[in-house]
Simulated assay, not measured.
Amino acid sequence: MTTFIPAITIPYGVFASPAASMLLPISLGGIIGYSTRPKKNQSQEPVSIKQPPLRPPPWVFGPAWTLLYGLMGYAAHRAITAGLSPLTSTPALIRSTKHSATLYSIQLALNLAWMPLFFGAKRPIEASVDILALLGTNLYITNLWWSIDRTASYLMVPYLGWLSFATYLCVGAGYLNGWDFRGKELRSKQE
């Protein structure tokens, strides 16, 4: 079990505010998403990355991630504030809550690293390892939060579902392209 590591854990003040807890992942995800989006003014026609079946249209990803970032941020707010409440917490629950806060911070970093790995660096193997670690970490967090705040745990279910689907898309794209994206770009079907 990972322990509470203050140096890499989001400060409690962020978790204490529902708005800050939700806006942190939304804003960071938006910045990373905007900075890694495919460029439309490329000088030559790129070869498209082959995609697995069931890939939704590109316009779905922005709204889906915004909603999921908001849900996970609110879940973190609920779990961390409930678990650290001096009125209801036990020493064991406080340790588990602090542990989950560190894990939540790690999962957010893993989440934010995925887009630059997949789109920027075009490293499908590393992106697949990242998203598998992200999915596993979130399964563990959801399990930890079950004993702290069940609503927070339930709020993570859509995120886990989307991460499972995103893992399929990531690994599928890597496999279909021979785990090599060099010289290829992800393009929508409308282009």
Rank of each mutant, 00 (worst) to 15 (best):
A79Q: 05
L67E: 06
G29F: 00
A173L: 01
P46Q: 10
R182Y: 09
N177I: 05
K122Y: 10
L144W: 01
P53I: 14
W145D: 01
L93Q: 14
T3V: 13
T167M: 08
T66M: 10
L28T: 12
L134Y: 04
W59Q: 14
L117F: 12
P18T: 13
I131E: 02
Y154E: 06
L24V: 08
P86R: 08
L144T: 04
R123I: 10
S85N: 11
A79C: 09
I131H: 02
W146N: 05
P91Y: 06
G70K: 04
G73K: 06
V60H: 13
I106M: 10
S128Q: 05
A16V: 13
P52W: 09
I26V: 15
L87W: 10
I49R: 00
D130E: 11
L132C: 12
W146Y: 12
T2G: 11
A79V: 08
I31E: 07
P11V: 13
S188M: 10
L68W: 09
G30P: 06
F165I: 09
T3I: 13
G30M: 07
S21Q: 05
R78F: 09
N111K: 02
L24S: 04
P57Q: 14
P91V: 08
P6K: 12
E185N: 07
T9G: 08
A82M: 03
I32G: 02
Q42M: 14
L87N: 12
R37E: 15
V60M: 15
P6S: 11
L135Q: 08
P56C: 10
L87K: 13
T137H: 02
E45V: 14
L71I: 11
T88I: 08
R95E: 15
S96P: 01
I31W: 09
H99M: 14
P63S: 14
A19W: 12
W145G: 01
K40A: 12
G172D: 07
Y168T: 02
A82I: 03
P86I: 08
S85H: 02
L87R: 13
A76N: 11
A166H: 05
G83A: 10
A75N: 05
A76S: 15
K184G: 00
Q51F: 12
W179V: 07
W145V: 03
Y159M: 03
L176P: 05
Q44T: 14
G183T: 00
T151Y: 02
W65D: 05
G73Q: 06
G183D: 03
H77Q: 11
P63Y: 13
W179Q: 06
W145E: 03
P46C: 12
A121D: 04
P18E: 13
K39P: 00
V47T: 15
